[in-house]
Amino acid sequence: MKELQELARTLLSSGTVGVVIGWEEGPRGARPAFITDAADSSRLIFDHRCTHNLATYLSPRRPHMARLGKAAIVVKGCDARAVAGLLRETQVKREDVVIIGVRCGGVAADPAGAKPLTAETVAERCPGCTAREPHLADHVVGEAQPEPPGAPTRDARIAELDAMSAPKRWAFWQAEFARCIRCNACREVCPMCFCERCVGDKTEPQWLESSPHPRGNFAWHVTRALHQAGRCVDCGECQRACPADIPLGLLNRKIAGIVADRFDYRATDDPTVPAPIGAFSMSDRQEFIL
């Protein structure tokens, strides 16, 4: 923690950056922090409650952030993949951001409270994580961390759904999507949803009905999933932000499986690896095409 705070202090006092985006202690556990004064660097923390992916604050569509000057951002390994995504899609220039990587031993599903990290409290995506060491970083701080507790659960859940009949799967997802209130929290929190105007808000024509209605909900969630193909970094923020507890992580995980299987692509914090959608191979599988 000291190392992180010292680094932030140096970066701010030397004028290298105008703001350090990290986490701090809040009234309900860890929360994002925007340190602009070197003297406040001691507020910075990093522990298993620092679930949030702060890369979303790098989006150029957040002008209030831009006003704070050049940013340093604290990233976990999974978050670094989002920064790589923003670099890949020319939203951020590498020289315009200082990346401080932190070594991660898994985070809690809920950043509030002081519960220890256990198989019960750990975020769904963490067990079995292979991205705990950030590579895309100017500085990496902290000691190596132990493996996150618990075992991966999502793949088993996906296999279970895949084994169902189509109508059963339909019923399952309809029940989930029925709770959607179209608050767009999943989109707002997502570091990769940086469009000027989301297609979900397009009105001429309106492809996706924006009121919470089964038809629009379905269209929205299909489209969101499709737009995340090969772009989602599996930070789990959409699911955490969802007030209706829709298992978006399950859908994201499914898509990650599809692009891994078909295009041999896995989310990475190497920005030079091209995204799979927008590219093609002559030998892409086409078993679904007559």
């Binding site: 150029p60 569509r61 899609e89 020319t90 939203q91 940086f194 469009c195 000027e196 105007r197 091209p274 959608i277 927008g278 590219a279």
Partner: peptide, 13 residues
Amino acid sequence: AALCAGCFHCERV
């Protein structure tokens, strides 16, 4: 231009 976010997926395809 007002709506383009400059992700350049178009450029790639």
